[in-house]
């Protein structure tokens, strides 16, 4: 196998005094969609935040394209090529939809053009002058994904994109992710919604109590259903 795009080794992280990640290893290869599974509190979101550097109290090794991200200040990590869509979506109420979309600086060439984005998300084009937080939950999620596509980031970190959304919207998000995959985007996804995750992911990691306990490909999924049922409580 070639050198992975994102390489995480022995990642530990703390919230204040409490130690939440105990040596997490994971790899994401170029063009792959990888999903982190696990129960609430297993450390999935923490893993994503630690990789992004939003959570600063962390140790271990994080490499993107061979470049060490650990020592970088937060605003330089994006320039290494990471695009972040937080769990709470982070749409700014003081900015219009268009301003929200244009906010993240371009970090590399090759991002989506504004036309492509508005083509992919026609709702956003219609409501480009509305206040960002006046959008529905689903539209806000689209906006949160859309605004990171412009930047040319080569790996997207998506935290629970389907949380709290109606089934129709979830389907729509699934379409978007498949469209991104078709374009060769690399995606690291945190997802509680297993039925959604199994439709889009190429590979899975399973977390429990701040550890990685298993990893397998989409083809191997059927064979793991019993143990998954147990760990995830499906």
């Amino acid at each position: 196998m070639t050198e992975p795009l994102l390489q995480v080794k022995g990642l530990q992280a703390w919230y204040g005094e409490s130690h939440v990640l105990h040596g997490v290893d994971l790899q994401v290869h170029r063009g792959e969609t990888v999903t982190l599974l696990g129960r609430n509190g297993a450390g999935k979101t923490t893993t994503l935040k630690s990789i992004m550097g939003v959570l600063r109290k962390r140790q271990g090794e994080i490499r993107l394209n061979g470049k060490d991200l650990m020592g970088l200040p937060l605003h330089q990590i994006a320039y290494a090529g990471l695009g972040f869509v937080p769990e709470e979506r982070g749409i700014f109420s003081g900015l219009s939809v268009h301003e929200n979309l244009m906010l993240p600086p371009k970090v590399a060439d090759g991002g989506f053009t504004l036309d492509e984005i508005y083509h992919l998300f026609p709702n956003l084009a219609e409501r480009r002058n509305s206040q960002g937080t006046k959008l529905s939950g689903g539209e806000q999620q689209m906006l949160a994904i859309a605004r990171i596509l412009r930047t040319g980031a080569n790996i997207l970190l998506l935290d629970e994109p389907t949380e709290g959304l109606a089934p129709v919207i979830v389907q729509r998000i699934g379409d978007v992710i498949r469209a991104l995959k078709a374009k060769g985007m690399t995606i690291l996804l945190v997802e509680q919604n297993f039925r959604f995750a199994r439709k889009v992911a190429d590979r899975f990691y399973v977390m429990e109590d701040g550890h990685m306990i298993d990893t397998f490909t989409a083809d191997e999924l059927e064979g793991r259903m019993d143990s998954l049922n147990e760990t995830l409580g499906l």
């Binding site: 992004m52 550097g53 939003v54 937060l74 605003h75 330089q76 990590i77 994006a78 320039y79 972040f84 937080p86 982070g90 906010l103 993240p104 600086p105 970090v107 990171i148 930047t151």
Partner: peptide, 10 residues
């Protein structure tokens, strides 16, 4: 924090 995570030198 999010603005800085997008690459802006806050």
């Amino acid at each position: 924090t999010l603005v800085q995570a997008f690459g802006v030198n806050v």
